[in-house]
Protein backbone atom coordinates (compact mmCIF):
# COMPACT_ATOMS: atom_id res chain seq x y z
CA UNK A 1 0.00 0.00 0.00
CA UNK A 2 1.23 3.46 -0.90
CA UNK A 3 1.71 5.46 2.25
CA UNK A 4 2.23 8.72 0.41
CA UNK A 5 -1.17 8.29 -1.17
CA UNK A 6 -2.85 7.70 2.17
CA UNK A 7 -1.05 10.57 3.72
CA UNK A 8 -1.74 13.23 1.14
CA UNK A 9 -4.56 15.62 1.78
CA UNK A 10 -6.01 16.17 -1.65
CA UNK A 11 -9.11 18.29 -1.23
CA UNK A 12 -12.52 16.95 -2.26
CA UNK A 13 -13.92 18.05 -5.55
CA UNK A 14 -16.97 20.26 -5.35
CA UNK A 15 -20.35 19.03 -6.53
CA UNK A 16 -20.46 19.09 -10.32
CA UNK A 17 -23.25 21.67 -10.26
CA UNK A 18 -21.05 24.21 -8.52
CA UNK A 19 -19.27 26.11 -11.28
CA UNK A 20 -17.48 28.23 -8.70
CA UNK A 21 -16.67 27.19 -5.18
CA UNK A 22 -14.63 29.34 -2.83
CA UNK A 23 -13.48 27.68 0.38
CA UNK A 24 -12.14 29.62 3.34
CA UNK A 25 -10.63 32.33 1.17
CA UNK A 26 -8.36 34.54 3.18
CA UNK A 27 -6.35 37.42 1.78
CA UNK A 28 -3.88 39.59 3.67
CA UNK A 29 -2.11 42.70 2.47
CA UNK A 30 0.64 42.93 5.03
CA UNK A 31 -1.04 43.38 8.38
CA UNK A 32 -4.39 44.12 6.77
CA UNK A 33 -6.82 41.25 6.25
CA UNK A 34 -9.03 42.00 3.27
CA UNK A 35 -10.93 38.71 3.20
CA UNK A 36 -11.70 36.61 6.28
CA UNK A 37 -12.19 32.93 5.38
CA UNK A 38 -14.93 33.52 2.84
CA UNK A 39 -17.01 30.59 1.58
CA UNK A 40 -19.17 30.94 -1.49
CA UNK A 41 -20.63 28.48 -3.98
CA UNK A 42 -22.16 29.45 -7.29
CA UNK A 43 -24.26 26.98 -9.24
CA UNK A 44 -24.44 26.57 -12.97
CA UNK A 45 -26.62 29.19 -14.64
CA UNK A 46 -26.91 31.32 -11.55
CA UNK A 47 -26.49 35.08 -11.53
CA UNK A 48 -25.08 36.23 -8.23
CA UNK A 49 -24.80 39.92 -7.38
CA UNK A 50 -22.23 40.94 -4.78
CA UNK A 51 -23.10 44.22 -3.08
CA UNK A 52 -21.78 46.10 -0.09
CA UNK A 53 -20.02 49.30 0.93
CA UNK A 54 -16.73 50.39 -0.66
CA UNK A 55 -13.74 48.58 0.77
CA UNK A 56 -15.80 45.60 1.85
CA UNK A 57 -13.72 43.21 -0.28
CA UNK A 58 -16.24 42.55 -3.09
CA UNK A 59 -13.84 43.29 -5.93
CA UNK A 60 -10.99 41.43 -4.24
CA UNK A 61 -13.20 38.39 -3.77
CA UNK A 62 -14.16 38.51 -7.44
CA UNK A 63 -10.51 38.79 -8.47
CA UNK A 64 -9.69 35.73 -6.37
CA UNK A 65 -11.95 33.65 -8.63
CA UNK A 66 -9.52 34.04 -11.56
CA UNK A 67 -6.50 34.56 -9.33
CA UNK A 68 -5.82 38.12 -10.46
CA UNK A 69 -5.63 38.43 -6.69
CA UNK A 70 -3.84 35.54 -5.00
CA UNK A 71 -5.55 34.44 -1.80
CA UNK A 72 -3.22 33.96 1.14
CA UNK A 73 -5.10 30.79 2.02
CA UNK A 74 -8.10 28.83 0.86
CA UNK A 75 -9.22 27.04 -2.27
CA UNK A 76 -10.77 28.33 -5.46
CA UNK A 77 -12.57 25.81 -7.64
CA UNK A 78 -13.84 26.72 -11.09
CA UNK A 79 -15.52 24.17 -13.36
CA UNK A 80 -14.33 21.31 -11.15
CA UNK A 81 -10.66 22.37 -11.29
CA UNK A 82 -8.57 23.80 -8.52
CA UNK A 83 -7.38 27.25 -9.57
CA UNK A 84 -3.95 28.67 -8.79
CA UNK A 85 -2.50 25.51 -7.32
CA UNK A 86 -0.85 22.48 -8.84
CA UNK A 87 -0.12 19.05 -7.46
CA UNK A 88 3.58 18.25 -7.31
CA UNK A 89 4.89 15.26 -5.38
CA UNK A 90 1.40 14.73 -3.92
CA UNK A 91 1.46 18.19 -2.42
CA UNK A 92 -0.19 21.40 -3.55
CA UNK A 93 2.01 24.23 -4.74
CA UNK A 94 1.26 27.75 -5.97
CA UNK A 95 0.87 27.69 -9.76
CA UNK A 96 3.16 29.70 -12.00
CA UNK A 97 1.77 32.50 -14.17
CA UNK A 98 2.05 30.14 -17.17
CA UNK A 99 -0.19 27.53 -15.55
CA UNK A 100 -2.56 30.16 -14.18
CA UNK A 101 -3.06 31.22 -17.78
CA UNK A 102 -4.64 27.83 -18.49
CA UNK A 103 -6.73 27.99 -15.32
CA UNK A 104 -8.07 31.35 -16.41
CA UNK A 105 -9.48 30.00 -19.67
CA UNK A 106 -12.67 29.01 -17.82
CA UNK A 107 -13.43 32.47 -16.50
CA UNK A 108 -14.25 35.63 -18.42
CA UNK A 109 -13.85 39.02 -16.82
CA UNK A 110 -15.27 42.47 -17.51
CA UNK A 111 -13.57 45.46 -15.90
CA UNK A 112 -14.76 48.84 -14.72
CA UNK A 113 -12.42 50.61 -17.18
CA UNK A 114 -13.23 48.28 -20.15
CA UNK A 115 -9.49 47.78 -20.87
CA UNK A 116 -9.91 47.18 -24.59
CA UNK A 117 -6.68 46.79 -26.55
CA UNK A 118 -6.21 50.28 -27.96
CA UNK A 119 -4.19 49.34 -31.00
CA UNK A 120 -6.76 46.83 -32.25
CA UNK A 121 -10.07 47.27 -34.02
CA UNK A 122 -13.29 46.01 -32.44
CA UNK A 123 -13.08 42.80 -34.48
CA UNK A 124 -9.42 42.22 -33.59
CA UNK A 125 -10.11 42.85 -29.90
CA UNK A 126 -12.68 40.05 -29.86
CA UNK A 127 -10.76 37.69 -32.19
CA UNK A 128 -7.35 38.01 -30.62
CA UNK A 129 -7.54 35.98 -27.39
CA UNK A 130 -8.96 32.75 -28.91
CA UNK A 131 -6.20 32.87 -31.54
CA UNK A 132 -3.36 33.75 -29.15
CA UNK A 133 -4.48 31.05 -26.70
CA UNK A 134 -4.69 28.51 -29.48
CA UNK A 135 -8.31 27.57 -28.83
CA UNK A 136 -9.57 28.62 -32.26
CA UNK A 137 -8.25 29.00 -35.78
CA UNK A 138 -8.30 32.43 -37.38
CA UNK A 139 -11.49 31.61 -39.30
CA UNK A 140 -13.24 30.21 -36.24
CA UNK A 141 -12.17 33.19 -34.17
CA UNK A 142 -13.45 35.60 -36.80
CA UNK A 143 -16.78 33.80 -37.00
CA UNK A 144 -17.16 33.70 -33.23
CA UNK A 145 -16.23 37.37 -32.96
CA UNK A 146 -18.64 38.60 -35.64
CA UNK A 147 -21.50 36.62 -34.07
CA UNK A 148 -20.75 37.97 -30.58
CA UNK A 149 -20.30 41.55 -31.75
CA UNK A 150 -23.66 41.24 -33.49
CA UNK A 151 -25.20 39.94 -30.28
CA UNK A 152 -24.07 43.00 -28.33
CA UNK A 153 -25.55 45.14 -31.11
CA UNK A 154 -22.37 46.57 -32.62
CA UNK A 155 -22.13 44.74 -35.93
CA UNK A 156 -21.68 48.07 -37.69
CA UNK A 157 -18.52 48.88 -35.69
CA UNK A 158 -16.30 45.94 -36.63
CA UNK A 159 -13.45 48.05 -37.94
CA UNK A 160 -13.73 50.91 -35.42
CA UNK A 161 -10.94 51.54 -32.93
CA UNK A 162 -11.83 51.61 -29.21
CA UNK A 163 -11.37 55.37 -28.84
CA UNK A 164 -13.99 55.91 -31.54
CA UNK A 165 -16.64 54.21 -29.38
CA UNK A 166 -18.68 55.47 -26.44
CA UNK A 167 -17.96 53.98 -23.02
CA UNK A 168 -21.09 51.86 -23.22
CA UNK A 169 -20.09 50.51 -26.62
CA UNK A 170 -16.57 49.77 -25.37
CA UNK A 171 -17.95 47.83 -22.45
CA UNK A 172 -20.25 45.81 -24.71
CA UNK A 173 -17.22 44.92 -26.84
CA UNK A 174 -15.32 43.98 -23.67
CA UNK A 175 -18.17 41.58 -22.82
CA UNK A 176 -18.02 40.09 -26.33
CA UNK A 177 -14.24 39.75 -25.99
CA UNK A 178 -14.59 37.78 -22.76
CA UNK A 179 -17.37 35.61 -24.22
CA UNK A 180 -15.22 34.73 -27.23
CA UNK A 181 -13.17 32.48 -24.93
CA UNK A 182 -16.40 30.56 -24.13
CA UNK A 183 -15.89 30.77 -20.37
CA UNK A 184 -17.92 28.75 -17.89
CA UNK A 185 -18.47 31.80 -15.71
CA UNK A 186 -18.42 35.53 -16.32
CA UNK A 187 -17.09 37.92 -13.69
CA UNK A 188 -18.23 41.55 -13.79
CA UNK A 189 -16.21 44.01 -11.75
CA UNK A 190 -18.35 47.14 -11.41
CA UNK A 191 -18.88 46.99 -15.14
CA UNK A 192 -21.14 50.04 -15.22
CA UNK A 193 -19.57 52.26 -12.54
CA UNK A 194 -17.60 54.35 -15.05
CA UNK A 195 -20.64 55.01 -17.24
CA UNK A 196 -23.38 57.59 -17.04
CA UNK A 197 -26.85 56.12 -16.46
CA UNK A 198 -27.88 56.07 -20.10
CA UNK A 199 -24.76 54.20 -21.24
CA UNK A 200 -24.93 51.95 -18.18
CA UNK A 201 -28.42 50.91 -19.24
CA UNK A 202 -27.27 49.50 -22.59
CA UNK A 203 -24.54 47.48 -20.85
CA UNK A 204 -26.98 46.23 -18.20
CA UNK A 205 -29.33 45.18 -20.99
CA UNK A 206 -26.59 42.98 -22.49
CA UNK A 207 -25.88 41.51 -19.05
CA UNK A 208 -29.55 40.83 -18.44
CA UNK A 209 -29.78 39.04 -21.79
CA UNK A 210 -26.73 36.97 -20.91
CA UNK A 211 -28.28 35.96 -17.59
CA UNK A 212 -31.49 35.02 -19.38
CA UNK A 213 -29.54 32.74 -21.72
CA UNK A 214 -28.27 30.82 -18.71
CA UNK A 215 -24.70 32.14 -18.40
CA UNK A 216 -23.26 31.76 -14.91
CA UNK A 217 -22.44 35.26 -13.70
CA UNK A 218 -20.84 36.86 -10.66
CA UNK A 219 -21.58 40.56 -10.66
CA UNK A 220 -19.98 43.05 -8.31
CA UNK A 221 -22.22 46.06 -8.63
CA UNK A 222 -23.67 49.23 -7.21
CA UNK A 223 -26.68 48.90 -9.51
CA UNK A 224 -29.34 47.86 -7.02
CA UNK A 225 -31.91 47.61 -9.83
CA UNK A 226 -29.85 44.89 -11.46
CA UNK A 227 -29.28 43.06 -8.17
CA UNK A 228 -32.98 43.19 -7.37
CA UNK A 229 -34.42 42.34 -10.78
CA UNK A 230 -31.85 40.14 -12.54
CA UNK A 231 -29.81 38.36 -9.89
CA UNK A 232 -30.94 34.98 -8.57
CA UNK A 233 -28.99 35.59 -5.40
CA UNK A 234 -27.59 38.63 -3.67
CA UNK A 235 -24.50 38.44 -1.50
CA UNK A 236 -23.92 41.30 0.92
CA UNK A 237 -20.33 41.85 2.04
CA UNK A 238 -18.82 44.03 4.70
CA UNK A 239 -15.32 44.16 6.21
CA UNK A 240 -14.11 41.18 4.21
CA UNK A 241 -16.92 38.89 5.25
CA UNK A 242 -20.18 37.74 3.71
CA UNK A 243 -22.84 39.19 5.98
CA UNK A 244 -25.83 37.76 4.18
CA UNK A 245 -26.57 35.67 1.13
CA UNK A 246 -30.08 35.12 -0.20
CA UNK A 247 -32.65 35.71 -2.89
CA UNK A 248 -33.17 39.39 -3.76
CA UNK A 249 -36.75 39.29 -2.49
CA UNK A 250 -35.31 38.65 0.97
CA UNK A 251 -32.26 40.94 0.87
CA UNK A 252 -34.34 43.83 -0.42
CA UNK A 253 -37.17 43.30 2.07
CA UNK A 254 -37.73 44.58 5.60
CA UNK A 255 -36.84 41.08 6.84
CA UNK A 256 -33.18 41.68 5.93
CA UNK A 257 -30.73 42.42 8.75
CA UNK A 258 -30.74 46.01 9.96
CA UNK A 259 -27.24 46.67 8.55
CA UNK A 260 -28.30 45.79 5.01
CA UNK A 261 -31.45 47.88 5.23
CA UNK A 262 -29.50 50.89 6.38
CA UNK A 263 -26.92 50.38 3.56
CA UNK A 264 -29.69 50.16 0.97
CA UNK A 265 -31.59 53.17 2.31
CA UNK A 266 -28.62 55.43 2.96
Amino acid sequence: MNIAKLDRRWPDRPEPDNIVELRKIRLDYGPLTVLHDVDLAIRKGETVAIIGPSGSGKTTLLRCINYLARPTAGEVWVGGHLVGQVEKGSKLHAASEGILRLHRLETGMVFQQFNLFRNMTVLENVMYAPMACGVASKEEARERATTLIGRVGLASKLSALPHELSGGQQQRIAIARALAMQPKVMLFDEATSALDPELAREVLEVMRELAREGMTMVVVTHEMGFARNVADRVVFMENGRIVDDGPPELIFSDKAPQRIQSFLNH
Binding site: L68, R101, N115, L116, A132, C133, A174, M181
Partner: peptide
Amino acid sequence: GVPPGQAEAARALGIPY
Protein backbone atom coordinates in the same frame (compact mmCIF):
# COMPACT_ATOMS: atom_id res chain seq x y z
CA GLY B 1 1.77 56.08 -21.40
CA VAL B 2 0.13 52.74 -22.22
CA PRO B 3 -3.06 52.41 -20.14
CA PRO B 4 -2.25 49.69 -17.58
CA GLY B 5 -5.58 47.85 -17.47
CA GLN B 6 -4.82 46.14 -20.77
CA ALA B 7 -2.17 43.91 -19.22
CA GLU B 8 -4.67 42.75 -16.65
CA ALA B 9 -7.32 42.14 -19.31
CA ALA B 10 -4.81 40.04 -21.25
CA ARG B 11 -4.00 38.00 -18.15
CA ALA B 12 -7.67 37.47 -17.41
CA LEU B 13 -8.19 36.24 -20.98
CA GLY B 14 -5.30 33.80 -20.65
CA ILE B 15 -3.24 35.46 -23.40
CA PRO B 16 0.41 34.32 -23.16
CA TYR B 17 2.65 37.11 -21.90
